[in-house]
Nucleic acid binder design. Sequence first.
DNA 1: TTAATTGCAAAACTTTTGCAACGCT
DNA 2: AGCGTTGCAAAAGTTTTGCAATTAA
Lengths: 137, 137
Amino acid sequence: MGKEIKRRNTKQRKAILEELKKLKTHPTSYTLFRILKRKFPKISLGTIYRNLNILKEEGKILELTGGKYGCHYDGCTEQHYHFFCIGCNNVFDLEIPVFKGLDKKVSKKGGIEVKYHRLDFYGYCQNCKKKGGDSYG
Amino acid sequence: MGKEIKRRNTKQRKAILEELKKLKTHPTSYTLFRILKRKFPKISLGTIYRNLNILKEEGKILELTGGKYGCHYDGCTEQHYHFFCIGCNNVFDLEIPVFKGLDKKVSKKGGIEVKYHRLDFYGYCQNCKKKGGDSYG
DNA sequence: TTAATTGCAAAACTTTTGCAACGCT
DNA sequence: AGCGTTGCAAAAGTTTTGCAATTAA
């Protein structure tokens, strides 16, 4: 409806999206900032945040709200589920089938309008499992 | 292991837990702060945060990391799933059966150690559905 | 050319923390 | 009495924003 903004394809925005598509360990905004600084030494956190919000709005990336601070970002927008390692704080994609039809079922049962769902698993990744044993709790 | 701390049962902590058990719309820390201020006009946000962390550590409440800012808190620690209304920002419990055994299955398949999972639904609640129609998108 | 974007700095917001006074046990 | 807890204020961490300069189209 309102004012359409004509986006430009800046080097910075391109690089952020590219990095997100490449990385398997979905980084936080700050991690992304440190990575991008290698290529753009003067890049600012403001630019990172602005572009993450734009890319999210355009549906090109996913925002994963896993921890208390700092969302993690995912360059793959196909629906899939995630595993959050509580040892190393990394986030991994899981290759388990998506529950299709679940949203509709829940909508009907609850009298609500479910748009999407998110299924997150928490625990220790292969690496942290090896290192920590069960001292982790 | 280390130093066991002997907790005291203060009025403030008791009231916070009580409020959380009572409310169906799981509040954020700040909402809780405003509610508790009615009973304790001088209560501070620091007290809210400290107690939420203690209660969480004691396993008496659940921390729901739904939005970018501000976790929501739930006074019920039985495993269950949640619905986040993207209209009014409230969070509701869902009464759908829990996927038992899912954690084990995913652990095996992924070579990881899943401790628990979280299933969140997003959309419009009964109220917001009525008000907004599909202008919400 | 021109309007979106950047880098920078400051502001806004959430959460934590140091400390003296207070209050459970 | 002893020490965990509170309220307050300041600090730390995350995210947004105003603005002049830059840059993609």
